[in-house]
Write a protein that binds this DNA or RNA. Structure first.
Lengths: 182, 182
DNA sequence: GGGCGCATGTAATGAGTTACATGATTGA
DNA sequence: TCAATCATGTAACTCATTACATGCGCCC
C-alpha cells in the first residue's frame, strides 16, 4: 500500500486542488507526517490520472502561470475508500532510527550517554510544543485523531527518556560511590 | 546520519563477523528494527572497508564457501563512537504511515471505521506478544534499552487504539439513538 | 531593479531492490 | 534424491531526489 497515493487521493477527494497547491500544502501542513518532494508529487498525480482516479484540467487566472486542477473520479473515490479501509485495518509498525543507538548505549561512558540523552530530550520537548500548537489549531477538524495519535507517541518518547535518564543517573551514581568505596 | 552504517559498525565492533553472518543476524534478530537486504548489506560493508573503518579477510573451513570476515579498525572504532554519540543526542522523529488513514477517518462510515480499527488492534496485540518474548530473551543484555523503548511505543499504540475505539463507539451510539428518537 | 513566489515540468543522478548465478553441504 | 542452507556477489531495474529551466507577478 502506498500511503502517498492515499494521501493525494484523499486531499483531492475533499476538494479539487491544483498541483502546486498540493505541493505547498504537503510542505507546510503535512511535513511532520510525510516528506514528499515536488517532482515526486507531480509524478504521482500523473500516475493517478493515468489510472483514471483523477482528471485534470488546465486553468489560468490573469497572466499567472497555468494551473493543472485535479478532480477525483468515481473510480478514484472507490479506490480511495479501498485504500482508506486497508490503511485503517492494517498495522504498519513505525520504524525508530534512534533505537539503533539504544542498542549500543552500553558502549559509551555513562556520563556521555547522559549528556546525549538530555540533548535528545530537549529536542523532543520542543517538538512537543510545536505539535501541540498545530493540534490546537486543528482541534475541531477531522485531523484531531491524527494529532492525538502523534502526541501520544511524542509523550511516550518524552516519558521514556525521562525515566531512562533517572535510572541511568542513579545506577551510574551507585557505580561511582561503589568505586569510591573500593 | 546513516543508521545502517552505525548498526553494522557496532556489530563488527562487538566481535568480528563475516558478511553472511551479518545478513542472517539482521534478518533474524533485527528485523523489527530495520530491513536490510543482502545486497545492500554487502554493499555497505564494501563502503566501510573503502573508508578504512573495517578490514576484511577471506577465510575458509573445509569445503564450505569462503567467508569474508570483517574486523573493525581504530579509525572505525572512533567513527563508531562519533556516530553513536550523534544518534543518541539527536531526535529523529519516527514516521507513522498509519496516520495518513487517521487523517481521513471521518470519510468512512462509523461502523466500518470500528471494524478496521479493531482489526488493527488485534495486529498490535499479537505484535506486543511477539516483542515481549524477544524482550524477555534479551532481559540481561544491553539490548534491553532498545526493547524497553520499543515496547513503550507499542503499548502506547495499543492504549490509543483502545481509547479511540471506546470514544468512537459511544459517539456513534449517541448518533444512532439520537436519529432513532427523531 | 533585484529577489522571492507562483506553477510546472524535465534530465541526470544516486541508491536500493529484485533476480540471478555459483557450487558444495546437510537433512528428510 | 530433492530441497534448503551456506556464502558472496553482479546486473538490470525501479524509483526518488537533486538540479535545472521557464517566465510572469509582486514587493521593497
Amino acid at each position: 500500500m502506498d500511503v502517498r497515493e492515499l494521501l493525494l487521493l484523499g486531499l483531492v477527494h475533499r476538494r479539487e486542488m491544483h498541483g502546486y497547491e498540493l505541493v505547498k500544502f504537503l510542505d507546510q501542513r503535512m511535513n511532520f507526517l510525510i516528506d514528499l518532494k515536488p517532482p515526486t508529487t507531480y509524478g504521482l498525480l500523473d500516475r493517478l490520472e493515468q489510472h483514471g482516479y483523477v482528471t485534470s484540467e488546465v486553468e489560468r487566472t490573469g497572466n499567472w502561470p497555468e494551473r493543472r486542477v485535479y478532480r477525483i473520479t468515481s473510480a478514484g473515490e472507490a479506490h480511495f475508500w479501498d485504500l482508506l479501509r486497508e490503511n485503517l485495518a492494517a498495522f504498519s509498525p513505525a520504524s525508530y532510527p534512534d533505537e539503533v543507538g539504544l542498542y549500543f548505549m552500553d558502549q559509551l561512558p555513562d556520563s556521555e550517554v547522559q549528556v546525549a540523552l538530555e540533548t535528545k530530550l530537549t529536542q523532543v520537548l520542543s517538538r512537543l510544543v510545536e505539535i501541540r500548537e498545530k493540534a490546537e489549531r486543528h482541534a475541531g477538524t477531522p485531523a484531531r485523531w491524527l494529532f492525538g495519535h502523534h502526541l501520544a507517541h511524542l509523550e511516550t518518547e518524552r516519558s521514556w527518556l525521562e525515566e531512562t535518564l533517572q535510572r541511568w543517573e542513579t545506577s551510574s551514581k551507585a557505580v561511582t560511590s561503589k568505586s569510591r568505596r573500593e
